[in-house]
Amino acid sequence: MPRPIRAILHLSALRNNLSIVKKQAPDTHVWAVVKANAYGHGLQRIWQCFEAAEGFALLDFNEAILLREAGWQGKILLLEGFFQPDDLQQIDRYRLTTAVHSHWQIKAIEEATLRHPLTVYLKLNSGMNRLGFAPEELLPVWQTLQELPNVGNVVIMSHFAHADDVEGVEQQLAVIRQASKHIDAGQCLANSAATLWHPQTHGVAVRPGIILYGASPSGKWCDIANYGLKAAMSLRSEIIGIQTLSVGDRVGYGGRYHSDKTQRIGIVACGYADGYPRHAPTGTPVIVGGVRTQTLGTPSMDMLAVDLSACPQAEIGTDVELWGQVLPVDDVALAAGTLGYELLSALAARVPVIIEK
């Protein structure tokens, strides 16, 4: 028998989540963000669930080519643009849309021999200070692009640093409005958080990512609980061993959990080599046999311990949900001091994947 851990992909949840996004932004195009191998879900496995989107947004050329070779004929956006001038030949061949955030990229486009004019997403640094042109550069750069034969449509693109918290988007939005006030171009600004909570940012296109997979951009499930979004991945395993602790017994590497009572614990076939966070502390939630309980001690490479006090019926073979449709991945990530993004995208290749339509 194989090791009992498995990841279940709920394809109906992906379709459901996209439909909710389209209702939240009814008058705009949707780029389904599928970077990082579709946030760990497997691009090749799930892309057809997002065929109702107007396009796919990603980083990796190989993933863009995968989509083309799989039969997708719609739009594909390279969120970080291209990395070498020679990449423009691939962009031209596969009819990709590219972000442009640096002067060298503009020069490369000007000098390239291309069969088709490019659609360019011109990146504005509105305050996040990652990629993009400074606000005072935006107008002259846009004017330069307008004059290039190799450039067709230009869309202004930016990214919000605080769309998921109390600071919100207004400060950056003011920068964007000021920088683009003399530019006649559509705008693509909204990430997942802005798509849900800041409709004034929707522009001609939105770029939802994490919400398509049923997790929260804020890291708190309660923030999206009423939208009807559903978890697209469940990480499940089973109890493979049971121990009974006495007072003072310790659990796991470093003995970081000390029992203060007689206590029954279960050992689950899941560890950090499967993508579970090693830094998850005692008390991280887990579902055992349908009952919410907690982890104990430090997860090891292949196993972790769980408290069976609340589920005395549990035995070897009892089902365990590490995260999924009962236990939001955001709850696990919050306990571990990270985000659902990281846990989903860190699913290890050794974990078998089961497709549930």
Rank of each mutant, 00 (worst) to 15 (best):
I65M: 10
L67K: 06
L67H: 04
G71Y: 03
Q73L: 06
Q73Y: 00
Q73H: 12
I76H: 00
L79H: 07
G81F: 03
F82K: 01
P85T: 10
P85K: 05
D86G: 11
Q90F: 08
R93L: 13
T97P: 00
T97A: 15
V100K: 05
H101D: 07
Q105G: 07
A108K: 00
I109E: 05
T113L: 13
L114T: 06
L114S: 13
L114G: 14
L114Y: 04
R115G: 15
P117E: 08
P117N: 04
L118K: 09
V120L: 10
Y121M: 12
Y121H: 15
Y121F: 15
Y121D: 00
L122K: 12
L124M: 05
L124Y: 02
S126L: 01
L138Y: 01
V141M: 06
V141R: 11
V141N: 01
Q143K: 12
L145I: 10
N150I: 02
V151F: 02
G152Y: 02
G152F: 02
N153T: 15
V154L: 03
V155Q: 09
I156P: 01
S158L: 01
A161H: 10
H162Y: 13
A163W: 11
D164N: 15
D165F: 13
D165E: 09
V166M: 12
G168H: 07
E170R: 08
E170A: 10
Q171W: 15
A174E: 15
R177G: 06
Q178F: 05
K181M: 14
H182A: 13
I183Y: 01
I183M: 14
D184Q: 15
Q187R: 15
L189H: 05
N191I: 03
N191L: 01
N191S: 14
A194H: 05
H198S: 03
A205P: 02
V206Q: 07
P208T: 00
G209H: 03
G209M: 01
